[in-house]
Amino acid sequence: MYKGREGQWAFLLHRISGLAILVYLLLHVFSIGSMIFGEPFYMKIHNTYDFVLFRLGLVAVVAAVVYHAFNGLRIILMDFTSIGVSVQRQAWYGVLGITALATLYALIKLIPRIAGGY
């Protein structure tokens, strides 16, 4: 692995979180849209989401969305201002901090759901 610094990891995480959100969104649209095949089919899909990995996935979705959103703001700042480029490293740590806080909040809020299911 190339020993890049913060910028490289910021880029890689942005790409991975972006793809993860895309997959989540497609799955989400399909699950909701599956109602057109009737309620039994819809419920069958939604019952699989009770699987523990999907429950934990809710926290991951929050982490991915918050990271992608705030790092997106960091990128806008870099693209439009030269200050953004000079503070990109600090900005990334800020993004990570916000993501960590949001993930922690989501985790605390979702504990009953993760532990108990629907």
């Binding site: 890049g4 610094r5 910028g7 490289q8 910021a10 880029f11 480029v85 990109q88």
Partner: peptide, 19 residues
């Protein structure tokens, strides 16, 4: 360019490439 900054870190001439 996706602003990964590897170029800036690597430049032996200290050019702020991403900027």
């Amino acid at each position: 360019c996706r602003t990964a900054y590897n170029c800036t870190e690597a430049c032996p001439r200290g050019i702020p490439i991403t900027q």
